[in-house]
């Protein structure tokens, strides 16, 4: 069954959201038109404004509506620590879960040569300038524990090693909290064993 053109268009447009198939898109469209017109208008305006105004922070590449994001502009952060992550969601996760007080650098991806993603595509030229500024004493590599994440971490570690006075660390890997050894995959377990620490 087909709806009027504009409704169809709305359903089609909603499908650009992750996890939204034709059925959910249809439900959303009817809900907005039927019961939540005010909310829908608000959503549309906010979306438009965000898309126009949100860009990338000049310093950390994270999403930001100001040229330098709040975190980078804050004077309560330790500016000698730089944590490197793949996505804005990772910044949020680390900020929520840890006491980390330093700054971030967001790659917006990882090195993946077979997909044509090289060092310049993930802003490593910008990171190089940042490392040259002399402000940073420790780089914490918090890229994903995937092969691409590891390759990226290694590449950045080498960049940092070419500059004097920068320590490089990699976040620890191993058995998840609340995890039972039996169900942990063998690579993780072997890494956890290799990197065991003295008590």
């Amino acid at each position: 069954m087909s709806f009027s053109p504009l409704i169809n268009q709305l359903i089609e447009a909603l499908r650009c959201l992750p996890g939204v198939g034709p059925k959910s898109a249809q439900r959303m469209a009817f809900y907005l038109l039927d019961r939540e017109r005010e909310g829908g208008r608000h959503l549309a305006n906010t979306l438009l404004e965000a898309i126009e105004k949100v860009g990338h922070c000049e310093q950390c590449r994270n999403l930001s509506e100001t040229p330098v994001c709040q975190l980078c502009a804050s004077d309560s952060r330790d500016r000698s620590l730089l944590c490197i992550v793949e996505t804005p969601a990772d910044v949020h996760a680390i900020a929520q879960a840890t006491e980390y007080k330093g700054l971030f650098f967001v790659l917006m991806g990882h090195l993946s040569p077979l997909d044509g993603i090289g060092p310049l595509d993930i802003g490593l030229d910008k990171l190089g300038e940042r490392l040259d500024s002399g402000e940073i004493s420790e780089v914490i590599l918090a890229t994903n524990a995937t092969v691409e994440g590891e390759a990226t971490a290694h590449y950045i570690a080498e960049m940092a090693a070419r500059r004097e006075g920068i320590n490089v660390s990699r976040i620890a890997q191993g058995v998840p909290m609340g995890g039972e050894l039996e169900y942990v995959n063998s690579s993780t377990l072997s890494r956890a064993f290799l990197e065991r620490h003295r008590l």
Binding site: P113, L114, V147, E150, A151, A153, H154, N185, S186, S187
Partner: peptide, 25 residues
């Protein structure tokens, strides 16, 4: 499923692994 055994390439070797894979592809 896992076939057992672990090949965790050190960071410095991953690019060589990618290269081997690309040649096959």
């Amino acid at each position: 499923e896992s076939a057992g055994g672990v090949f965790t390439l050190p960071g410095s070797r991953i690019i060589s692994g990618f290269y081997m894979n690309e040649l096959i592809l």
